[in-house]
Nucleic acid binder design. Structure first.
Length: 275
DNA sequence: CTAAGCTAAGGTGAGCTCTG
DNA sequence: CAGAGCTCACCTTAGCTTAG
C-alpha cells in the first residue's frame, strides 16, 4: 500500500490522493514524471522529487521517514512494506505513574518469535534486543508503553511506531485493546476478564509467594496482548484498505495466531479474583 | 492585470480516550 | 484516579490556478 500512497507528500491531502487514484495514477510508478497532465508544472516537479525520496527511503528500509510524514491514523499503510522489521510490543507495570511505578514484564513479538523480559531476571536485555527492529506496533504505546520504557530503562526509541489506538479509532473501534479484540470476535479463554490492573496483582503475588506459575500466568497475559496486536494490525490494515480502491487486490490473509508459550493457571486466577 | 475559487497549512481550543 | 497525545472543528492565511 505504501507505493500507492501520495498523501505523505506536503501539499497532497487525502482528498487529492483519491482523485489521483480515480484518474489512474494508482502508484508511484504511474505518476507522470515530466510535467504530466495532473498538476501544474511546478507542483508536478515538487511531487516527483518527493516520490524519488520516497523510493530511496523504501529501498533503505526506513519506515521512520513515512511515519513522520503521515498522520497517526494513516500509519497502517507502512505495515506490508516493512512487515519484516516489525516488533509488537506491550509492557506491564506496577501502576500508571512513570515516576512512582516500575516495569514488571515486557513482551516482544516479531511475527515469528516471542520474547519476554522480567524485572529482576532479564529486563535489561530488552534495550539491546529492541534495536533490531525498525517498526514498533503497540496499542496506546505513544502515551504509555514507549515513554514509560524510555524513562525506566533510560533509552530512547526513535524508530517508526504504529499506535493501533489511532488507526482502530479511525475505524470507529474504541474501548481499549480488549474492546477492539471483542469487536473483531477475539476471545481470550481462561484469560478473559484479566486486565492490566489484574496484572499488577499477579506481579505482587509472584513477588510475595514466589510461585513460578503466578509469573507464568502474568507472562501468558502479557504475551496474549502482543499476539493479538498482530491480529488487530492485519484486521486494521484490511479494513483501512477497504476504504481505498485496492481493497481486494492488496488484502492480507489473517495469520494463524502465534502459540502462547505460557499458560494461565486457573487456580492462581481464581485465588486472586476476589482480592 | 484582477477576481474568484480551491486547497493546504498553521493555529487554537475543546473534548475524548487510554494506559496499570 | 493523572495526564499525554490525538482528533476534530473551525478559523485565518497564503499560494496556486484559471477565467475574463
Amino acid at each position: 500500500m505504501l507505493e500507492k500512497t501520495f498523501c505523505h507528500i506536503p501539499g497532497i491531502s487525502a482528498r487529492v490522493e483519491h482523485s489521483l487514484w480515480r484518474d489512474g495514477i494508482t502508484s508511484w510508478e504511474r505518476f507522470p514524471a515530466e510535467g504530466g497532465p495532473f498538476f501544474s508544472w511546478k507542483k508536478n516537479g515538487h511531487v516527483a522529487l518527493h516520490l524519488d525520496e520516497s523510493r530511496r527511503r523504501l529501498a533503505a528500509n526506513d519506515p521512520a521517514y513515512f511515519c513522520a510524514a503521515l498522520p497517526s491514523r494513516e500509519h497502517w499503510r507502512l505495515f506490508s512494506a516493512f512487515a519484516g522489521s516489525i516488533a509488537y510490543l506491550d509492557i506491564e507495570t506496577t501502576g500508571l505513574s512513570r515516576e512512582a511505578d516500575v516495569i514488571t514484564t515486557i513482551a516482544l513479538y516479531d511475527g515469528r518469535e516471542i520474547r519476554t523480559y522480567v524485572r529482576g531476571e532479564n529486563l535489561e536485555a530488552f534495550a539491546a534486543d529492541i534495536r533490531n527492529y525498525r517498526l514498533l506496533v503497540t496499542y496506546n504505546g505513544k502515551c504509555f508503553d514507549l515513554p514509560f520504557i524510555e524513562t525506566a530503562l533510560g533509552i530512547s526509541l526513535p524508530m517508526a511506531h504504529i499506535d493501533l489506538r489511532y488507526v482502530l479509532g479511525s475505524l470507529g473501534m474504541r474501548g481499549g485493546l480488549k474492546g477492539c479484540e471483542r469487536e473483531i470476535g477475539l476471545s481470550r479463554g481462561a484469560l478473559d476478564g484479566v486486565d492490566g490492573l489484574f496484572a499488577v496483582r499477579l506481579w505482587h503475588d509472584w513477588r510475595r509467594r514466589g510461585e513460578r506459575r503466578t509469573l507464568e500466568t502474568l507472562l501468558a497475559y502479557n504475551i496474549e496482548d502482543v499476539i493479538n496486536l498482530e491480529l488487530l494490525m492485519v484486521h486494521a490494515y484490511n479494513r483501512k484498505l477497504a476504504e481505498t480502491p485496492f481493497g481486494d487486490e492488496l488484502r492480507i490473509p489473517v495469520p494463524e495466531p502465534a502459540k502462547n508459550p505460557f499458560c494461565a493457571d486457573a487456580g492462581v486466577l481464581d485465588r486472586l479474583r476476589g482480592w
